[in-house]
Amino acid sequence: MIRILLADDQRLVRAGIRSILEDESDFEVVAEAADGRAAVSACHQHHPDVVLMDIRMPGTDGLQAARTIAADAGLASVKVIILTTFDLDEHVYAALRAGAAGFLVKDTEPDELAHAVRVAHRGDALISPSVTRRLIAEFAKSRAGGARPDARLDVLTHREHQVMRLVAAGCTNHEIASSLVLSPLTAKTHVSRIMSKLGARDRSQVVVMAYEYGLVDPGRLDP
């Protein structure tokens, strides 16, 4: 059972999302919150697996709440999915940098919402949709450091560089394994080592780092 927290300042929006989620047999909505501060408090109280977090709320907004959750070692297992009205939103990029697992626009179809929750829960980043990679590329352009990748990537092996590029392209572990002729378990191990070496909370942060550190050209969706 996947335990979910809904954080949105509009009660009708929360009710609509709850109705969609409760149609799924493997979902349980354990709590709701009307602002970021209440969302963080509910995380400590209920320890949800996934938080669906509106980015624009009064008081403590979703961005600050996502940062707080990501920085709390006691909430390391909590995956935050940002909900936004606009796909190209610099605040969403900041949330991805802070450790959010990904984002969804609010007009997402119900089956896509359910899929996103399951993807986040199993530890994958919501980076397959081209719009997410486009957003990361758009806001990483001004941060690109030049032709040579940032020295912070020197801790990675050549194989880990290859894997990181594929993660940035939205590839799953199975797709990485197929591309590099590895077993899925080996691909997963490489991803875990990359996250550990770079201090990344999840795959989304690995994607952001791939762009910001110059491993991937921000002008292209595929590395």
Rank of each mutant, 00 (worst) to 15 (best):
V105S: 10
V78N: 10
S178Y: 10
A65E: 04
D124E: 13
D154P: 04
M53R: 00
P110D: 08
G123S: 05
L96F: 07
A39N: 07
L104P: 03
F86E: 15
T68E: 13
S128L: 14
H174W: 15
G36V: 04
R134Q: 12
L96Y: 03
A94F: 13
G62H: 09
V40H: 07
V50G: 05
M53V: 04
A177H: 05
A65M: 03
R148G: 07
A38G: 01
A38S: 04
D54V: 03
D150E: 08
D154N: 13
F86R: 07
E32C: 05
A34H: 15
H158M: 13
V163M: 05
A73M: 09
D54E: 06
R152H: 10
D35Y: 13
R67L: 01
A39P: 07
R148H: 12
A98D: 02
G62A: 04
A140Y: 14
R165I: 13
A38C: 01
V80H: 02
A169C: 03
A42Q: 06
Y93R: 00
F103I: 06
H174S: 11
S128R: 14
T68Y: 10
H47T: 14
K106S: 03
T172V: 11
H44S: 08
G170K: 02
S77R: 11
R56P: 04
G99A: 01
I176H: 06
H47G: 06
L63P: 04
I82V: 11
D107F: 14
A98H: 02
R133E: 05
T172A: 06
I176P: 03
A98L: 02
L52E: 12
E109Y: 12
E32I: 07
S41A: 11
K141F: 11
I127G: 08
D89M: 00
G36Y: 07
A100L: 00
V51C: 06
D72K: 00
L88Y: 13
V78G: 07
D49Y: 14
L88W: 15
F139N: 00
Q45V: 13
G123N: 05
A168T: 03
D111C: 15
E175H: 08
D87L: 04
